[in-house]
């Protein structure tokens, strides 16, 4: 089953003196349970692609389907709600709400989803446990290391029970140990919970572990490799 499908996806930034073609006719399918890395040099269009797939920005032309629902052209307010119910996000930084503790950050998404209150706390704790941060539940983000913050972000992304998780360079700001640690957690979630994960990176250590690697150059897919691991 295809979770994501794109059809001739293009994005041109026109508001500059010279229009920038950030994405050119991208056709892409992501199946349920895939663990995919989008790689490519800086400026190749990774962030732009993820933003389009996550419904954070509209393409200039082309279509995006999430489970057969077309999100291109969707109204902003509907799109926000669609994101809330279907997509988990892990950004490079500024992931968490600084005034909320780790567990409150995780519960926050469930609150937005009107998740039953009585089960919320239990689930938030389970998620923190899965990312190895059960003991940091009541700590605010600024007291956590960068790696720990990203792990809370992963737990937060999973809290909404999304169809897939998008992560834009989640390890970019992390030291090697933390990067591996985060990657291990993501891999395990993929393997054990069948979470569909799509992330961008230009970090070779991360690329080596992905099961599918899509390479972007100048906004076009130049390579799409599947590895059996």
């Amino acid at each position: 089953m295809k979770v994501i499908r794109t059809h001739d996806l293009s994005k041109t930034y026109n508001h500059l003196v010279v229009p920038v073609k950030a994405l050119v006719n991208v056709n892409l399918e992501i199946s349920e349970g895939e663990f995919t890395a989008i790689v490519g040099p800086s400026g190749s269009g990774k962030t732009t692609l993820l933003n389009m797939l996550g419904g954070l920005d509209q393409p200039t032309s082309g279509k995006i389907f999430i489970d057969d629902t077309e999100i291109t052209g969707m109204k902003e307010s509907r799109l926000i709600d669609f994101r809330l119910r279907n997509i988990g996000f892990v950004f490079q930084s500024y992931n968490l709400i600084p005034v909320l503790t780790a567990i409150e950050n995780v519960s926050f998404i469930m609150l937005l989803q009107n998740y039953p209150k009585d089960k919320m706390e239990k689930r938030a704790r389970e998620l923190l446990e899965q990312v190895g941060l059960a003991d940091k539940a009541d700590v605010r983000p600024q007291k956590l290391s960068g790696g720990q913050q990203q792990r809370v972000a992963v737990a937060r992304a999973l809290a909404s029970n999304p169809r897939f998780v998008l992560a834009d360079e989640p390890t970019a700001n992390l030291d090697t140990q933390s990067a591996f640690n985060l990657l291990d957690i993501m891999l395990r979630l993929n393997r054990e919970e069948n979470i569909t994960l799509l992330f961008s990176t230009h970090d070779q250590r991360v690329i080596d572990r992905a099961r599918r690697v899509i390479t972007l150059v100048d906004g076009s897919i130049v390579e799409d490799q599947h590895f059996e691991k």
Partner: peptide
């Protein structure tokens, strides 16, 4: 700006 953007990205609606 970034934090508010993030909140809307992850699905906090405009009313909220």
């Amino acid at each position: 700006t970034r934090e508010l953007g993030m909140l809307m990205d992850v699905g906090m609606n405009k009313v909220k």
